[in-house]
Nucleic acid binder design. Structure first.
Lengths: 183, 183
DNA sequence: CTATAATTGTGAGCAGGTAATAATAGCCGG
DNA sequence: CCGGCTATTATTACCTGCTCACAATTATAG
């Protein structure tokens, strides 16, 4: 009997690990045991109830999505002079980190810069066609990245921009972006 | 009276837009009205109850996190010859799109490339120090991006890599990455 | 065969609601 | 100033998916 219990509990654990949206009811049916058994198992495993699980997923998600998700502008716009320059800030979080080195992954720094560049070109429909970038020093969680994009030259079909990112007064990123205007 | 109501409802809307975790109770206190008023407002605005909102966030999140979140390697590794080349694929989704142009935002393409480059350098602790990249054509949702990173030169403290991304047999991205080795 | 472990059942109570119905307050036009 | 309308508040019953406490049953190992 004890073997069955352990078996069920470990299955329960992994089942809920990759699908937190199951009710005790559904779990009870899946394992062909009573709802109370499922509750006892959850207690023993320290697994919270459905609603708490969903809340946790939603919360994580909320943090992570902000870090690099569907936002059009990554970071928060701080200053904006149309056709001249824009400044955005982004707080580096643990979600952005490459574990081995504990440094912020380059794509996040690039994303802040690129999205600001695209935003600056907002007079029309712009897409990034090229960029030459340097990541000048490693960035750690907790740093506040201040990104400045300045329009260098505006041609008929292209915009050239210089984008730099600083943190605690030292340069961490510098890049030249070329955006193409399609309309 | 009508003005007050509209005011409150629009505030309610935007409040819940960027914080779906508020109960009717809390909202009622915030607006100094009864709980029923809040419920009526939600009805009129078609806003579901707290639990449904949280569930929605959790669900989205579940999908979105997969697209571009805390993963170390963005995309799925397809081929890997240590010290030579690696290939990853990434399906472009609606979450990656810049609304105005309906094209995938450059940072996603960059992220796939950069994370693959870092992965390739996995023998040691590598960080991106520079990159020169071209986005050769717009990419739309639904395309499968196949990214190839090849090691060009390995120096004592640096790795040079060529990274290209293709989709439906045409080149969409090409870049040269330089990674620094710290250990 | 019995002591212990595992399972099942029962009832009360809670949070955060829905739904329906009624009563009250505030304002506006005539 | 009063009738009518909208907005607001209150009240009650009910729902889901639990928790908590307690009891009863079943299984099984020693």
């Amino acid at each position: 009997m004890r073997a069955k219990k352990r078996q069920r509990q470990s299955e329960l654990q992994s089942l809920l690990d990759d699908n937190p949206f199951l009710t005790d009811q559904e779990l009870a049916e899946r394992f062909a045991v009573s709802i109370q058994t499922i509750r006892l198992d959850r207690m023993e495993l320290g697994i919270p109830e459905l609603r708490e699980r969903v809340k946790m997923v939603a919360n994580d998600a909320y943090a992570k999505i902000k870090s690099l998700g569907e936002e059009e502008l990554i970071g928060d716009l701080w200053q904006f002079e149309p056709e001249v320059r824009g400044v955005s800030t982004l707080d580096a979080t643990m979600e952005m980190i490459y574990e081995k080195t504990m440094t912020v992954r380059a794509e996040h720094i690039f994303a802040q810069a690129n999205s600001l560049a695209v935003f600056m070109a907002n007079s029309s429909e712009a897409i990034t066609v090229g960029a030459s970038v340097q990541f000048l020093r490693p960035v750690y969680a907790g740093e506040r990245l201040v990104c400045t994009a300045a329009i260098v030259k505006r041609e008929e079909k292209r915009i050239h921009m210089d984008v730099t990112t600083t943190s605690t007064d030292s340069l961490v990123f510098s890049g030249k972006f070329i955006l193409g205007i399609s309309v």
